[in-house]
Design a protein around this nucleic acid. Structure first.
Lengths: 296, 296
DNA sequence: ATGCCGTGATCGAAATTTGTCATGTGCTCG
DNA sequence: CGAGCACATGACAAATTTCGATCACGGCAT
């Protein structure tokens, strides 16, 4: 394991194992980091030999972390956090002002929370007011000028040139295997809140495609929908990351749902140096880690 | 400043600026890190260009940190702390047992405190009992088997092969310019506590060199001695790091004081895995940073 | 079983980074 | 003013890192 003293944990290597964790696999991590797969593989190997222990359990094509790996991940997260903050702190300019920001519930528990917290620390003279609403509401607020920017979900084909793409999500029609779809009667539909725009799309297709959806369940949180699907109450539109093993993806019967994208969308004609910086920090975080970590 | 994203702070570069701070200058830092002067100079330059700002104020031969430099230093300390702890944590073996450790007052506020704290965190099943005494007392306790190891000050020529050298110190005879040494009468001597072995040496030379020293002031803490010297109360033996600009080093009249060394000295025939690890950690810290930081 | 993927390891060559030696510059001090 | 110290700089050598290609392995469907 080389000499006990000359050992060091490369920042890039730490970022690599962090990416492996959050993208599930070396290949995806490499892609996210803009490196080749072999480069990342080597990085990990170097890390392992320098530490003298295995970090990954390369049993099969699957990638699992060893105990040591998990331990290092914990440190990696903390070190990278400090590191990135140091980097920002050194290139910061003194900012002051106000930012009115909108978020969806989903994104509150993602890496965005960290970015916002750090932004507060680094720019204490900027007051950030954050409101959590559903995407459709946030979009309306942006139009009204009530928000300077918002992180909203939009259909992939609706992305504007000025939007900053955070990550993409695929939507699926799902049901529990025990639920058999009636051929003639209307299909029981499990829906998010009234204002959720999946629902708008879902109900729209009824008119176009001649499929009758009957909303039998309404709940604002994903957890509720997941439970309802799992108990066979009906069909629903769910994100990839909300899929559970017991769920069945419905590929026939319904039109393929459009892809979704989370974006940072800025309000109309807002000129705001503080906001520029915040958006730049989000973009930089994305490019550094190849996307934003989102809790599932 | 390269692309805002691809920037990273190399661990080695952070260690370099940390070393520059603690050894006062690039040349010394390079020596401490076991690198050439130009290597360290290049490292800093790279860091600066990658950050797009000056870290050091290279006005003259002197090396001062800029505001950004100081800011980075702060982060560097925290990042390196985490980094080193991660490194240790991953190579640790489960330890249990007891360690009875002796320290001098000087060393309590050095990097040793960090090492001890970290050791506690990493090895919660090892109970470390620490006692702070003067070097002579500690040596006696080691002999008696009351301590497993101690960090003590010894004369450079007394270092044993098994001792781990922490850092060296030069002792000087000092006085305030306003104090004129009497040619015939005895010289007023400002002394540490009775058990301090500088004092033993100082009083011994009286017999060998025919110089009369009269102890006119006794104080256990360096701060007291420094104040007494500065007010012209007498002469004293002081560490290099306790010298103040107003003090005058006496080069004639007295024999040159022997060099001092801080060492980790282990007790007699103590076999203790936990102690081995602790000593190894101290050694590793020294070799990584080229010495131990000691508050002045 | 028998081929496919998909995922990761491995190897040699190329590119990049890092370190060293030799030398240049600027400042201080005797 | 010249010696000495501290650092910068440039050219070159050494090391490390990356890439592309290829190999090996385990699942999965036929």
């Amino acid at each position: 394991m080389s000499d006990l003293n000359n050992r060091r944990l490369e920042i890039d290597a730490l970022r690599a194992i962090w990416a492996i964790r959050h993208h599930g696999g070396i290949t995806r991590a490499a892609e996210a980091l803009g490196l080749s797969q072999s480069a990342v593989s080597h990085k990990i190997k170097r890390l392992e030999t320098s530490l003298g222990c295995e970090l990954l359990n390369r049993k099969a094509g699957t990638t699992a972390f060893t105990t040591e790996g998990e331990e290092l991940l914990d440190y990696a997260g903390r070190i990278l956090g400090l590191h990135d903050e140091a980097l920002l702190s050194l290139s910061k300019t003194t900012l002051a002002g106000r930012i009115a920001l909108g978020l969806t519930e989903d994104t509150t528990c993602s890496a965005l929370a960290h970015i916002l917290g750090r932004f507060r620390r680094l720019h204490p003279d900027v007051s950030v007011r954050t409101q959590v609403r559903m995407s459709l509401v946030l979009r309306a607020m942006l139009e009204q000028g009530e928000l300077d920017a918002a992180i909203v979900q939009v259909f992939a084909h609706e992305v504007r040139p000025t939007d900053v793409i955070l990550f993409r999500e695929t939507l699926h029609w799902v049901k529990h295997p025990s639920l058999l779809l009636p051929q003639t009667a209307s299909v029981p539909f499990l829906s998010f809140h009234d204002d959720c725009f999946y629902r708008h799309w879902a109900l729209d297709i009824g008119q176009d495609g001649g499929i009758m959806l009957e909303t039998v369940f309404e709940c604002a949180s994903a957890a509720g929908i997941i439970a309802a699907v799992s108990s066979g109450m009906g069909v629903a539109l769910l994100n990839e990351r909300h899929l559970r093993p017991e769920m069945q993806i419905i590929t026939d019967r319904f039109p393929v749902p459009p892809d979704l994208v989370y974006v940072v969308r800025r309000g109309r004609k807002v000129r705001n140096a503080a906001l520029d910086t915040l958006v730049a920090e989000i973009e930089s975080e994305i490019s550094r880690y190849g996307g934003l970590a989102l809790a599932s």
